[in-house]
Design a protein around this nucleic acid. Structure first.
Length: 425
RNA sequence: GCGAGCGUAGCCAAGUGGUUAAGGCAGUGGAUUGUGGUUCCACCAUUCGUGGGUUCGAGUCCCAUCGUUCGCCCCA
């Protein structure tokens, strides 16, 4: 019998690791709700055209990384490669934009891209993201960035760098694109092969090539901020000023270009040195054209997503997370006693205690051994003698002290026990 | 999609063509049939990711395949 394994690029999150995920979700929920962001949950698959139109057909994500398939009704569906397109689709479909003002939304869940797996990059990966839709105010850009940095800081991550750039409006980019082509064309032969191809179809991407020679050439390339229109430049300057006012440090990176077509104006990434090649923990920016592109009214917006696998790699480097340990471990042996132990376990749980019931039926010695391995604070022992007299033995594992109580006495002194449990931790 | 390294038990591993596949952690049983964390004893891979091949002989060499890691690419 061959065993079935999880498919390439997917991972099981085991009980030993799930605590990190819960910690991130808990922290995120708190930060989001304090900033009045509402959770939204959208389907994991959508019509393929949503992503083609939203992300752009000439991006790598849409061009070669999507899980696209026909369903039994011959509809072309795609497992979502990112979260923003689905959120914007839902916003338009349910007219959320018409309820006035801005929409503050967040989401989390699995995303799918067909890529070569490596550290911090799975085919099914998870993001937590935020969208602020309905304002073009630079304060919106900064609110979004500030929430991201707050979340990461509250999780205890400090060695992170925020890089920002502005990619302007579509018109700004057209102007810049030509200037860049004019600059790069004389160097065409010296560029790496990928960049030579991009010179024709996506010259902006040449800027963040890792090829040393290309980087050298890109160093002196014209900068996009010099090609921004007056309003675009003012917007970006305001964003920088507000970041400074908030005490959020950042670096301007003229080569920061995002890979999805919908980005406009502010683009940013938060990176870590401790992740290897996949250094970006959080990426995002403004996307003023997307709502309209997907059939809604002209609506400005800004958002970001955090890659949870990468975030959790950083958390694991930093500290261990503990698994749930029982307050009481219920040791029982004998037909009658085992039945009573089950009932007692339930009663104690109703009173708010964490109780693990030993189901092995093995010797007391073995059950005690398991109790200490599970990290239990105390054992409650029910054997034939106790079953007959309606009593239990309460044993504190740390101090090895033991007392006999009736079950009624035990239940009556729960408040007391809570204090003792804390003292014996 | 391209390039490189790796794949021995649940985990960490030794093993460099001669065969009974070290060791440690974890686990199971017992010493101790009503009391754990220490100690002691025993057990725990007919087989080295999988499939072929070379060889008298393969965990070890070759090929393929799958997985994994790193880089490119891409992105979070």
């Amino acid at each position: 019998m061959t065993i079935i394994k999880a498919i390439r690029g997917t991972r099981d999150i085991l009980p030993t690791e799930v605590g990190y995920w819960q910690q991130v979700e808990k922290t995120a929920r708190q930060i989001f709700s304090q900033a009045c962001y509402q959770e939204i949950r959208t389907p994991i698959f959508e019509q393929t055209t949503l992503f083609e139109r939203g992300i752009g057909t000439n991006t790598d994500v849409v061009g070669k990384e999507m899980y696209t398939f026909l369903d039994k009704g011959d509809r072309s569906l795609t497992l979502r490669p990112e979260g923003t397109a689905g959120v914007v689709r839902a916003l338009i479909e349910h007219n959320l934009y018409s309820s006035g003002g801005v929409q503050r939304l967040w989401y989390t869940g699995p995303m799918f891209r067909y890529e070569r797996p490596q550290a911090g990059r799975q085919r099914q990966f998870h993001q937590i993201g935020l969208e602020l839709i309905g304002t073009s105010d630079p304060r919106g850009d900064v609110e979004a960035i500030a929430i991201a940095t707050d979340l990461l800081r509250n999780l205890g991550l400090v060695n992170l760098h925020l890089a920002i750039n502005s990619v302007g409006t579509g018109e700004d980019r057209l102007l810049y694109r030509q200037a860049l082509i004019d600059y790069l064309t004389p160097y065409q032969q010296e560029l790496d092969p990928d960049s030579q191809v991009r010179l024709l179809n996506n010259p902006l991407r040449i800027l963040d090539s890792k090829d040393p020679k290309t980087q050298e050439i890109a160093q002196n390339a014209p900068k996009i901020i010099d090609y921004l229109s007056q309003p675009s430049r003012e917007h970006f300057e305001r964003v920088q000023q507000l970041l400074t006012d908030l005490g959020i440090s950042y670096q301007l990176n003229h080569c920061l270009v995002r890979g999805l077509d919908y980005y406009t104006h502010t683009a940013f990434e938060i990176q870590s040195q401790d992740l290897g090649a996949q250094a970006t923990v959080c990426g995002g920016g403004r996307y003023d054209g997307l709502v309209k592109e997907l059939g809604g009214p002209e609506t400005p917006a800004v958002g970001w997503a955090i890659g949870l696998e990468r975030l959790i790699i950083l958390l694991q480097q930093k500290s261990a997370v503990s698994i749930v340990q029982p307050d009481f471990y219920l040791v029982s042996r004998g037909h009658e006693a085992e039945a009573k132990a089950l009932i007692l376990a339930q009663k104690l749980r109703y009173l708010g205690l964490t109780v693990e019931l030993d189901l092995s039926g093995s010797t007391f010695a073995k059950q005690f051994k398991r109790a200490s391995r599970q990290g239990a604070i105390a054992c409650l022992v029910l054997g034939d003698t106790e079953a007959e007299t309606d009593t239990i033995q309460l044993k504190w594992l740390k101090t090895q002290t033991q007392e006999t109580l009736t079950i009624a006495e035990l239940l009556a002194k729960i408040p007391d026990l809570n204090k003792q449990l804390a003292a014996n931790k």
